[in-house]
């Protein structure tokens, strides 16, 4: 009995010794790693040859343009749905509301913003050619995304209208469960949308996210929509 107690005690002591040695080694290694840092002046040693630059140069671009708060006049979005030559005919500008953060560029979109305290809401602008299928088709697609039944042509015609880019544009608010094409589901969501018909094209402005967040962004969204304006030099 005494022997087994002695063996257990010895085992515990050895484990404590080993743990102490490991911790000491860790501290020494961490200390050595922190001493081995580079100086304040560093030579650039890595180079790479590329056929084309991933992002083309933009001489004279301001910080506001680089960060997506403004769009250089006459510069179409590289991912705009409308062919570049035709999109260049629509050089409109906007003012981003306070607190909105420019988000990563996405195809078909002119610009994307994240809004809300934790950037939970998304707002983006798209331009579609050939009227984009018409206001009713697009509004009903939005309603389908929110799990709501479609509206009739008469109901679409009765929607409230605000003036954007000089055109009366239907405004929609749809509450429901938002389902993205990837299958992502967001319960208690709110969609604010605007369809602005401009000649052969349609400009779509859409915001989706948790209802409470989008509700709080309603005024900002409206301000953003009405801030859309033709840039100098546009053929309006």
């Amino acid at each position: 009995m005494a022997q087994s107690t002695y063996a257990v005690t010895l085992g515990i002591l050895m484990a404590v010794r080993d743990s102490f040695c490991i911790l000491l080694t860790a501290l020494l290694a961490a200390l050595l790693a922190s001493c081995g840092g580079e100086g304040s002046v560093v030579e650039i040693t890595r180079t790479r040859s590329v056929e084309s630059l991933p992002k083309p140069p933009a001489a004279g671009a301001t910080s506001a343009q680089r960060f997506g708060y403004e769009r250089p006049a006459g510069t179409p979005s590289p991912h705009a749905a409308v062919p570049a030559a035709e999109a260049a005919e629509f050089p409109f500008a906007w003012t981003a509301p306070e607190g909105w953060r420019p988000a990563e560029e996405r195809p078909m979109r002119v610009v994307t913003f994240a809004a809300g305290p934790n950037q939970e809401a998304e707002c983006y602008v798209t331009i579609l050619g050939q009227g984009g299928g018409g206001a009713a088709a697009n509004i009903n697609r939005w309603r389908e995304q929110m799990g709501q039944p479609p509206l009739t042509e008469a109901e679409v015609a009765a929607l409230p209208v605000i003036e954007v880019l000089g055109k009366p544009s239907p405004w929609v608010e749809i509450r429901g469960t938002f389902t993205g094409q990837s299958g992502a589901v967001l319960d208690d969501a709110l969609l604010l949308g605007l369809v602005c018909p401009v000649d052969a094209f349609s400009v779509f402005v859409k915001m989706t996210g948790p209802a409470s967040v989008v509700e709080a962004q309603r005024d900002a969204f409206l301000a953003f929509c009405t801030s859309l304006a033709w840039s100098p030099g546009a053929n309006s």
Partner: peptide, 9 residues
Amino acid sequence: GPFTEYIIP
């Protein structure tokens, strides 16, 4: 092009 990129990790 081609262009030489100087990379700082």
